[in-house]
């Protein structure tokens, strides 16, 4: 099913940034990726940066506080921690860490200064969020005991991802020198390195695929390190090419349908036959669309990973099965 056989080699990647068009399920995919990376006793941090508590909902836990909390376990003692990064808290933490400003936080907040720094000063909000990711990646590195084996970020959507990650360019327009600039530069050091991979989640539909291809071009132009394209909600087909061709033109052999249905204990009445033929035609159209969209994606040269559509929706069990699907396709590589 994989068009690209090039297995991703992510052995050096510590920061996985997961983006994708709205509605493609990037939070689900980020969570499944974190579970897959945690297998084999690894410790993984899953970061959320858009303040929606989507991770808590996925893992069926109460809203998460601004602290790294254990949300799931994986085989052989693997653990996934989650952290919803809030720019305000990240700023206060940053001020405290680098400048020893602690008690001023309240006054700054009251004055609207925190609001100011985190909402309007261009790039500051983003550098605080990406800065938290890069801090988690680097934590413990100096003593050769990294705090996390991998950090997975549920990042902003494809339309905004390049600007979001390209923080030092944004900051450069504003602050030519100064500490925020050097902070941005050090964050960029992590993001632009082989330690980072940006993955784009898509559905095999025209608009998400187009947005993915545009996003890839933008990320490449900005010199950001690309990982894989992760196809979500892919419909698998057991039908042969010949059967699909017949299904598409509603010319499936009626005799075979009748005898098959009878053997299955279902009375092959006209409505049943008509419904089967209609559904098969829908399915064939869907598969054809998927194939052509997959081909468009394959042309971008990135590894393609594929996750199945789950008709029962996404719950914790489904997350584990999606994680297994990623492992089956060569992850963590």
């Amino acid at each position: 099913m994989n068009v690209s056989k090039r297995a991703p080699n992510w052995s050096r990647v510590r920061l996985h940034v997961v983006s994708g068009k709205g509605g493609t399920g990037k939070t689900t995919v980020a969570a499944a990726l974190a579970l897959a990376l945690a297998k084999g006793g690894k410790k993984v941090l899953l970061l959320e940066v858009e303040g929606r508590q989507g991770i808590a909902q996925l893992f069926d836990t109460p809203p998460l506080p601004y602290q790294e909390s254990k949300v799931a376990v994986a085989e052989d003692g693997g653990v996934v921690y989650a952290l919803p990064v809030d720019p305000e808290d990240a700023l206060l933490e940053y001020l405290e860490m680098f400048y020893g400003i602690k008690r001023g936080g309240y006054a700054l907040r009251k004055l609207g200064a925190i609001d100011f720094a985190t909402t309007i000063a261009p790039g500051v909000r983003d550098v605080l969020l990406t800065g938290k990711a890069s801090e988690a990646v680097k934590r413990g590195e100096k003593i050769n005991r990294p705090a996390y084996d991998a950090v997975v970020m549920d990042a902003p959507p494809t339309g905004r991802i390049t600007r979001f990650l390209n923080v030092n360019t944004e900051i450069a327009g504003l602050a030519k020198v100064g500490p925020i600039r050097s902070h941005a530069d050090s964050v960029m050091g992590v993001i632009r390195s082989a330690r980072t991979a940006v993955h784009l989640v898509t559905l095999l539909e025209e608009m998400p695929v187009q947005e993915t291809l545009d996003g890839i071009a933008d990320l490449q132009a900005a010199g950001l390190p690309l990982g894989a394209v992760i196809i979500n909600q892919s419909r698998h087909s057991e039908l042969s090419a010949q059967e699909l061709a017949m299904a598409a033109t509603s010319s499936l052999p009626a005799d075979e349908l009748r005898s098959g249905l009878r053997a299955a204990g279902i009375d092959p009445t006209e409505p049943v036959l008509a419904a089967m033929i209609d559904e098969a035609a829908d399915h064939a159209a869907r598969v054809a669309l998927q194939d052509s969209e997959r081909e468009r994606l394959a042309a971008c040269g990135l590894p393609l990973l594929e996750l199945p559509l789950l008709s029962g929706g996404v719950d914790l069990a489904a997350l584990y099965s999606l994680a297994d699907a990623l492992t089956d396709q060569g992850l963590p590589g």
């Binding site: 087909s237 057991e238 039908l239 059967e243 499936l252 075979e256 349908l257 005898s259 098959g260 249905l261 053997a263 299955a264 204990g265 279902i266 419904a275 089967m276 559904e279 098969a280 399915h283 559509l309 008709s311 029962g312």
Partner: peptide, 26 residues
């Protein structure tokens, strides 16, 4: 259940029944 009952025979019908079940569940 019908798809199960076919146990490897009539693969086309078995797959169509599974597709129908997926749609119904969705």
């Amino acid at each position: 259940a019908g798809a199960e009952r076919l146990a490897g025979e009539h693969s086309l019908v078995a797959e169509l029944l599974r597709l129908h079940a997926d749609r119904m569940e969705t």
